[in-house]
Design a protein around this nucleic acid. Structure first.
Lengths: 110, 110
DNA sequence: AAATATTATCGTAATATTGCAATATAGTAA
DNA sequence: TTACTATATTGCAATATTACGATAATATTT
């Protein structure tokens, strides 16, 4: 085999892992940082900025879009992608929940 | 080809993507949740709890450990894993930075 | 309409990940 | 030491991801 057994895990667990997985590539982190810096994101700009082909950039954008991390609107004949605040907020809540649960631990074994 | 071109991205970008990648599997999310619930984590318990073999669980634990998300200490002849608060805090900062940068945007295109 | 510009998709090859059985390793107990 | 228990590693097969060239789709301009 080799495929991940997503059927055996909860919907929440699958949803979260999909979100993190989308962030699990340096190019996609770089794309997000670019969006935050330039306040916009046009595919062509990324192709010039990064040493990746247009097809590859487009694929990474597609994955980020699929995970609802970015959202796009048409602007002339190019497409402008922006971050999705709701998804960021969700990520924030998850991490905070992890940290809170950690702090509640009375017995540390490590 | 097919490998990710990590050489072309910054150390920070690679570091972050490695961290997120480690969280990008439902089993590993489930393991983290188990640690938060039971306040400890013994490999054998996970093998009973999840429909995965001992070898597979051990591999997932290894990946989480390698990403510094969990840390282990020997306890009798089993090993107890706990979360690494520093890594959680780092994740928290990254997400917060994303959100802050998002809020600073004057011109929204989406 | 035709030419141009920009992004998306397809097909393919290389690499990475996932999962498990089998085996190895490390600690405990007799 | 031997037997037992728990975790780690190895080797392999199946699936997923990454990357790119070629091509398609869509919008703009002439």
């Amino acid at each position: 085999m080799g495929a991940s057994k997503s059927d055996h895990f909860s919907e929440e667990q699958n949803e979260l892992s999909t979100l993190f997985k989308a962030l699990g590539h340096p190019a996609r982190i770089a794309i997000i940082q670019h969006i935050l810096e330039t306040k916009s994101c046009i595919c062509g700009d990324l192709v010039e900025k990064f040493p990746l082909s247009q097809a590859t950039i487009s694929q990474h954008l597609k994955e980020l879009k699929h995970a609802n991390i970015i959202q796009g609107t048409i602007e002339g004949n190019s497409i402008c992608y922006c971050l999705n605040p709701q998804t960021l907020e969700k990520l924030n809540q998850v991490i905070n929940h992890f940290i809170d649960s950690e702090k509640c631990k009375e017995t540390q074994c490590c």
